[in-house]
Simulated assay, not measured.
Amino acid sequence: MTTPYPPVRPGELHVWWLTVPPAGTGTKTAARLLDPQQRERVARLKRPLHRHRKIMAHAGLRVLLAGHLGTLPSEVRLRRAVCPACGGPHGRPYAAGGHGLEFSMAHAGDGVLYAFARGPVGVDVESDAVTARTARTVAGLLPAARRRALDALPEPERLRAFLGCWVRTEAYLKGIGTGLAHGIGAAQGASADPAWHLMDLAVPEGFTAAAAVSERASAVAGSPPARLRVRTRVLASASVIGAAEPARTREGR
């Protein structure tokens, strides 16, 4: 079994950051932590760099979940909840036997963001290297009022404001369980939704990130909702690769 991580308690949001090592560093080893379905999805990616990043991101998630659940990363069983919009099997992900522990993951470039809470949670991270042209295109998906507010800003401020708006929007959609599959209409009233906390997250330079945390995650039984306490940690890539070494030994490779 892995060493347990500090327990996630009601009123807490545990945030982890993983910096993916250079392509090829431990890729095959880390891939042993993924289940057959994940390996198949990764294999469909055409670019080796994209495969490497995907493998490390999902291997890191399994390492963190294993630490919380007291099991091996390769034995974590991931499932999907029902989508609240259409009833399809693509809602929020969860770990079988998680006993109320919920999580969310996002990655951009070589950065991976994870969040754990005792209630529904969603996170998103984007690279600040996004071009102004891409930002304008994606901003076109936002409600008209938000687009007008962004357009009114000076160019140097517009990109930063767009990124902040977008990561909060996607974090909220992940939190409620629809993701982007049903468009962003459900996020129009996110900032005024009393059932959710939206917050910016501190991440390494070059990235912008946010979290959406359900009011359920900040509530302690028998008490009014408390101020959410955020705990931030770094997951070393070496520990992810190291966690896969027992799997390699069992396979005799």
Rank of each mutant, 00 (worst) to 15 (best):
V213F: 01
H182Y: 04
T19A: 14
E245G: 05
E205A: 15
A85H: 12
A192I: 07
A195F: 00
S191G: 11
R136S: 10
E155K: 06
H58L: 02
D151N: 09
G24Y: 06
G177E: 05
R250F: 06
R44F: 06
E245H: 12
K174Q: 08
M1D: 05
E126S: 01
R32L: 14
T137I: 13
G177C: 07
H90P: 02
S104C: 08
P73S: 05
A247R: 12
I55S: 06
G67N: 03
G111P: 11
R79S: 08
R80F: 11
A57C: 09
H68C: 03
G185C: 09
V15N: 02
A181Y: 03
P36R: 07
L18G: 12
H50I: 00
A145L: 03
Y94H: 13
A132R: 15
E215L: 13
Q188A: 15
G87P: 13
R92N: 05
G67R: 14
A57T: 10
L180E: 11
T2G: 00
A209V: 10
G88C: 10
G67W: 03
A217F: 02
H50F: 02
P48G: 04
H14C: 05
V20D: 01
D35V: 10
P154S: 13
K28H: 13
T208C: 09
A210H: 04
V230H: 08
I176K: 06
R227W: 07
P36A: 10
L150F: 10
G140L: 08
G206R: 09
R32S: 11
S214Y: 02
